[in-house]
Design a binder for these strands. Structure first.
Lengths: 192, 192
DNA sequence: GTCTATAGGCAGATAGAC
DNA sequence: GTCTATCTGCCTATAGAC
């Protein structure tokens, strides 16, 4: 019989994840997380030895979740243009919570990250590009998408443009700017 | 008769600017700047009362410089497509120094910034969009540029996509990713 | 698993001499 | 303008009781 209470480690990850996405990895502390959960900093160290380990755990979970969400698109959505829309909606959902993409935030702070975290950031973008590349090639094959240059380069444009749209949209508040940028970006791939 | 030595305040701004662009506003300290210039933290406080004031001074100078650079494009470059290329090259020059755009970095850290700095970040993006909007309308008028939707929305796509391309390119090292994204983005505006 | 207590360091900042 | 000296406070982290 499963309880309704959430594992403490999970609660820690939830709070820390939000803090990193809103304030950055260098913009939050163990004290912030502890205060919010009404536990002590020492209790945090029991679950995650140090900030670096906490960061690695955040990345592992985030990457897995994002991969699941992306895989879910393939089962629900069939044609390539709609898959791109659904992909952009993943970013929109994050922005609605007034957060930055975790990996986009960490990309900004990249030079200050513990070494183990750096690799996972790069891998995140790579994984996304691989998936998008397949979608783009599929769409070009059946004539629903149109772009010049390689599918991989176009995938890179999509990833970086969506990250940039999130980055700039947050200081302005609201999701309008992101949506406008996202729509215009994807519209360019749908018209012949 | 002007001396060859550089004003200390200017040296401080130079070092601090680089540190913010590489490590973020929350990723550098007065101690870092002082050590690099072989002066004490107290000397820094003489020139800039606090980190917030230093940050404001950085933004003021950066915004002015960027505006000058953008204005310079208008005097050197005449047709709209070439102006867009020159604009993208401003970002490329920053990336070549292995830095992020100052305002892109601060956009990521927006929620943790001192209030006076926030407004200047928003204004930076606004100013850039205004200039780009004029270039886009000019280009559409003489038939050298083609895009659907408003010039303002397209300007926003350009700004956010270039910021995103810088953001993602840095963890991968080198400028290739940025150049590929930049070229593809602008190519879409040049073809009919 | 969570606590109290504390270590050791670095942050931003100030007073006052030179 | 720059220094030494110092402050207060927060940071990450650890030891050891419960």
């Amino acid at each position: 019989m499963k309880t309704s209470t959430v594992d403490t480690a999970t609660q820690i990850l939830d709070v820390a994840e939000r803090l990193v996405q809103v304030r950055g990895f260098n913009g939050f502390s163990y004290a912030d997380v502890a205060a919010e959960l009404h536990i002590t900093k020492a209790a945090l160290h029991y679950h995650f030895a140090g900030k670096s380990e906490l960061g690695e755990a955040l990345m592992t979970r985030y990457t897995a979740r994002f991969s699941e969400a992306v895989a879910g698109i393939e089962t629900r959505v069939l044609d390539a243009p709609a898959r791109l829309d659904a992909y952009a909606d993943l970013y929109l959902d994050v922005l609605r919570m007034e957060r930055m993409c975790l990996c986009g935030m960490l990309a900004a702070e990249y030079q200050t990250l513990p070494a183990p975290m750096r690799d996972t950031v790069v891998r995140f973008f790579d994984n996304n590009e691989v998936w998008l590349t397949a979608v783009l090639e599929h769409g070009r094959g059946d004539g629903t998408l149109h772009f010049t240059g390689s599918a991989r380069d176009t995938a890179r444009v999509i990833v970086s443009s969506l990250e940039g749209a999130m980055l700039v949209a947050r200081p302005f508040g609201g999701i309008a700017r992101f949506q406008a940028a996202s729509r215009q970006l994807l519209a360019g791939l749908k018209r012949p």
